[in-house]
């Protein structure tokens, strides 16, 4: 199936009749997935600076209202239908990882589930990865996204569409009047220029080097700003707080970062991760060792955002590089 590029916005308008459509767009400060107002242009040149995770896991989200006078708590129930048109394969993979945490582990997160069930993802295959992209080293195919409902790839004056799921079939039916026949197999293969060699037992090797001086060196320049967690599509740690008015108020959760000292500090002052060395080690090991141990897959999708935006030029790919280097040095 194909859709002519000049019909793309008409197709979006058909979808927008029944769901809120989000597109990668240029923002004032950073590119991000924004609500499409019916006229805005998609930004497809490179991936957005901000990840799409907030559509499933908002920066700040109401969980429940409490009323101590009445003795009640009232649960929030998000129910908005959302379609993301133009999510990159790396970001689709990040959603699959978030699913593991919020849907497939011991407890189901009801807020995430409500948003996830209402989400349709139309992926946009990457034709030109950025210099910081390394998704194909992290088992993502730049031009394909099996976890998306629909995948679209640029083919000159049109997009080639592949439907993966019943939600995708629904999108196809909504926009059928704009579609024409076309093959999907004419998408040229794409390769990232940044390559990361990682051994199969990387997680074991990293844990074995828990006390290695390399963590000190790696974290030396870290400012503890938390930018990496904020723009990471898979960083899902959160804090729970409340906005209180006397005896009533709202409990909310919001993004948190393991790079902050407050994150793990206990009442009484003890902090199991007292310096940036322990904090950076925990973040990298969570991505590359702990998550693989628990969920069977690396938590890094190779989107390269943290490399691109870190003010201190920290680079997560240095970690497997060091392991590889030390291996080859014997």
């Amino acid at each position: 199936m194909k859709i002519k590029k000049d019909k793309f916005k008409d197709a979006l308008a058909s979808i927008a009749k029944e769901a809120k459509v989000f597109l990668p767009m240029k923002g004032v400060y950073a590119s991000e997935y924004r609500v499409w107002d019916g006229a805005g242009e998609p930004f497809f040149e490179r991936n957005t600076a901000l990840p799409p995770k907030e559509l499933l896991f908002p920066r700040s989200e109401r969980m429940y209202e409490y009323d101590l006078n009445a003795g009640t708590v009232t649960e929030a129930a998000p129910d908005e239908k959302i379609v993301i048109a133009g999510i990159r394969p790396c970001d689709v993979r990040s959603v699959e990882h978030l699913d593991k945490v919020f849907l497939e582990s011991e407890y189901t997160d009801v807020y995430y589930r409500a948003r996830r069930e209402n989400l349709t993802m139309i992926a946009y295959g990457c034709a030109t990865p950025a210099p910081t992209c390394f998704c194909d080293s992290m088992d993502v195919v730049p031009t394909d996204a099996p976890g998306a409902d629909v995948v679209m790839n640029d083919a000159g004056n049109s997009y080639v569409l592949t439907v993966n799921t019943p939600k995708g079939e629904h999108i196809r039916d909504l926009i059928s009047s704009f579609l024409s026949e076309g093959k999907a197999d004419d998408v040229p293969a794409v390769s990232c220029s940044l390559k990361v060699e990682k051994p199969d037992d990387l997680h074991k090797q990293l844990i074995a080097r828990f006390d290695d001086p390399m963590w000190e060196t790696l974290s030396d320049a870290c400012l503890g700003c938390g930018c990496c967690s904020y723009i990471c599509p898979t960083c899902y740690c959160f804090d729970i707080g409340r906005e209180n008015r006397g005896k009533t108020g709202t409990a909310f959760r919001c993004w948190d970062s393991c790079m902050f000292s407050d994150y793990s500090r206990m009442a009484g002052g003890h902090n199991p991760r007292p310096t940036k060395k322990e904090r950076l080690r925990n973040r990298y090991l969570h991505k590359l060792a702990y998550f693989p141990e628990r969920y069977g897959t690396s938590l890094c999708v190779g989107c390269g955002r943290c490399i691109d935006k870190c003010p201190a030029r920290l680079d997560i790919t240095n970690v497997p590089d060091i392991i590889q280097g030390s291996e080859s040095n014997g």
Binding site: Y107, I207, Y236, C237, F238, D239, D256, C258, H286, R294
Partner: peptide
């Protein structure tokens, strides 16, 4: 914060 293995902070290894 969460008590159900999601908010992240109480990990020791995995």
């Amino acid at each position: 914060k969460c008590g159900v293995g999601k908010c992240g902070r109480c990990n020791i290894g995995s």
